[in-house]
Design a protein around this nucleic acid. Structure first.
Lengths: 341, 341
DNA sequence: CTGTTAGCGCCTTCAA
DNA sequence: TTGAAGGCGCTAACAG
């Protein structure tokens, strides 16, 4: 028994307030809830004073237990060290605060077992809704969870899980990238993606790349994955006499990081030897070489939208699941300067 | 009344399990709690089966209400977009999971009002302990909170709040930076810090810089702050004929970002014209110019330690508050290559 | 308008 | 070893 658990037991409760104000608990409850209008001036004032004197704060656990409303939103993130996740989370968090919700964030570190554990935990805290950036390796668990609460998927679809989805318009993003690269004079492209592993956004980006290339006869392109072979893949790409000026298309921020590292290892002139465009925009993009051209996702807005979806569902919206596909914004920097060749 | 709140009301409860297993709630409670040893094999098995059949998950809210133990840890972060915060948070989160705790993260965006709101919210959820990276503008509120729960400060001290502190050994970090810069041949230094604003770690770094310079007669140095004047300050520094080779000392990651931007705007050769060392190590440091030399904080470890402190306090440790000052690790890159002049 | 009365889901004596 | 009963702090009928 330490001083803290003792102190906790002694926290001022609704009963304390009621007694001090000389009213019933119900009145206090009305005061702190939505029925304040029902109270007389006099009583309301006494309660208010008592609350302030005692420093009373309602216990959300107890409220939640009774009403089934915890005002808690869960967010499960596959990789919290991905700046994209942080940016979205920031948007969610802001929206939560604006609406009186709080956010419980769990990071799975791309680990299935951790995802399982965290989902169980979130459920046990009676979160009202879940924002989910999942590996999707266990759709059944998610389906079951969806029986109990609204879910919004972020960035990645899950087979058979028909929930709202907030993500990027991947086809359009790829279109913008290809169009820009072609305009600037690049002809020979290498798309670099993280390993797919069932991630829908990665699949969509790669498929869009492949299919749209077919519609742009001026361009040639290949796809490779990040990992130990990346160094060799990029080297091969650069040294194979090609179809014309070469550029890399990085499918997300981490791929951009990996590619930039490799280009430096290969002693490339950044970015005179090879162009580069990246999906996602990171704070250091302007600083590397002549700057990295980016397709920035409106992450803040996406986070806010995700929360909005949840809120709508929580207030009874039962319409069909929607997919919100946001458009990225092209930010041109030195890595795709028009070629003068 | 929507399908979700309805579903929630229907979630399987301890009573359901008890009935299905043909035992009392008390036995189920013992099974899921720490008294499983008291149960007979037969009953334990029946309960276990019932739990699995029904997919029962104990409701943490109810448990918390009864026992005062919510297994919830709060973490308040001043700026979630600072990679340092993320890294520490990642350490905390991992430690939490290992010990069966969950983490509620709040971001104040460096805003006092948001800090106040978030602290109130965390308190209302009966978190058991708090990891705090605060602006420290309202010590009284924190003192009061500390009556109720253990607090561990991260990076920043708060006057009169005598809690455990996890941070960097700032004096030693500055010593390492100065020693390295001097060894590499730099003589004229400019320290760039974010505006102090009462932040203890910033104050300590600046004070250490000033006082340690006095003990190194070979060096000269000045201190400036990030902000709109930074461009001019750095320009002046670079163009003032000086005491010898020049280098910047960035007091944290954000200062490093700001400085690198300015150096590019000034068309500096990164980093032939001027040296640079930064406190904090960011993923893009190797990619800029010849690479940025860093003093990396052991963030993961710091996060884990913070949680450890909390755990100790929660289990009754009442010893005097400790300050855990970690040492950074020097990572030499191109920005401080030995000068050959 | 206000108070009384039942619980929300769980844990914890206290008996059996 | 097990069960019954009371209550954690709060809300939601129901009376008055």
């Amino acid at each position: 028994m330490n001083s803290f658990s003792a102190a906790q037991r002694t926290r001022v409760t609704m009963l304390d307030v009621a007694q001090r104000a000389g009213v019933s608990k119900a009145s206090v409850s009305r005061f702190i809830g939505e029925d304040r209008a029902l109270l007389s001036e006099a009583i309301a004032e006494r309660i208010e004073r008592a609350i302030n004197d005692l420093g009373y704060r309602p216990n959300q656990m107890a409220r939640g237990l009774k009403r089934g409303r915890t005002r808690l939103i869960g967010m499960l993130v596959a990789d919290i060290r991905n700046p994209y996740s942080i940016a979205v989370m920031h948007g969610v968090e802001t929206a939560c605060r604006l609406h009186g919700y709080n956010l419980v964030v769990c990071n799975t570190d791309r680990n299935d077992e951790q995802e399982r554990q965290h989902l169980a935990a979130l459920r046990s805290y009676n979160i009202e809704g879940l924002i989910l950036n999942t590996l999707g390796h266990d759709p059944d668990a998610l389906l079951e969870l969806h029986q109990e609460m609204p879910i919004v998927l972020i960035d990645r679809k899950v087979e058979q899980l028909h929930t709202d989805l907030v993500g990027l318009d991947n086809a359009d993003a790829v279109r913008m990238a290809l169009e820009h690269l072609e305009q600037q004079g690049y002809r020979d492209l290498l798309m670099v993606s993280e390993p797919v592993d069932g991630t829908s956004s990665r699949i969509e980006r790669i498929q869009s790349f492949t299919s749209q290339l077919a519609a742009r006869p001026a361009l040639r392109g290949t796809v490779v994955k990040t990992g130990s072979a990346l160094h060799a893949d990029i080297q091969t790409f650069l040294h194979t006499p090609g179809h014309g000026p070469k550029a890399l298309f990085c499918a997300n921020g981490l791929a951009a990081l990996a590619c930039t590292q490799v280009l430096r290892e290969l002693n490339c002139q950044l970015f005179a030897d090879v162009g580069l465009i990246a999906l996602d925009d990171l704070e250091w993009f302007p600083l590397v070489g002549s700057g990295i051209t980016a397709l920035a996702q409106p992450t803040q807005q996406m986070g806010a939208s995700a929360f909005d979806c949840l809120l709508k569902r929580l207030s009874g919206d039962k319409s069909a699941a929607r997919a919100l596909n946001f458009a990225p914004q092209l930010i041109v920097r030195g890595s795709t300067q028009p070629l003068t060749t």
